[in-house]
């Protein structure tokens, strides 16, 4: 059985803050081919003292737009994330799943609101 590949966020963002969506994109591009190859990935936030949702949306959330939910959930594990940022991760994953299950959901919702007004 293959050992999981460990990706350290701090190595890719070059510091203690994961606060840039463009940095999230780098992580996404690193993780995606590994998961597609069937490799388990451990994404380590060791040494990271600030994380924002926009980063998590691109680094992790976008994976749900390419791969099946259960594959991402099973093969990607997050490690060493400070507990205070756990709600941000959970929210990002929850919204990402909802978004990619039905990308037109918001379009429908806003059209309904406009219809209500008329």
């Amino acid at each position: 059985m293959n050992e999981p590949i460990i990706i350290r966020v701090s190595d890719l963002v070059g510091g203690p803050r994961a606060v840039d969506a463009a940095d999230g994109e780098k992580i996404f591009e690193k993780i995606l081919p590994l998961l597609q190859d069937g490799r388990d990935v451990r994404l380590s936030f060791e040494g990271i003292s600030m994380v924002i949702t926009a980063f998590l949306n691109t680094a992790i959330g976008k994976l749900y737009g390419v791969l099946p939910e259960d594959q991402v959930d099973r093969m990607l594990k997050v490690k060493n994330l400070l507990p205070l940022f756990q709600p941000s991760l959970e929210k990002s994953v929850e919204w990402s799943k909802a978004y990619y299950r039905d990308p037109e959901r918001l379009q429908k919702a806003i059209m309904e609101e406009l219809d209500d007004e008329e």
Binding site: N57, T58, W95, A98, Y99, L106, I110
Partner: peptide, 29 residues
């Protein structure tokens, strides 16, 4: 969304958590 929503209504919509205009990834912080 290719619509013509009045500005205040649009801002009201945007303030609801989970609502976003981003197309290639989820947003709505």
């Amino acid at each position: 969304f290719k619509i013509n929503m009045p500005p205040v209504k649009a801002l009201r919509w945007a303030l609801i958590e989970g609502h976003t205009t981003k197309q290639d990834s989820p947003g709505g912080v």
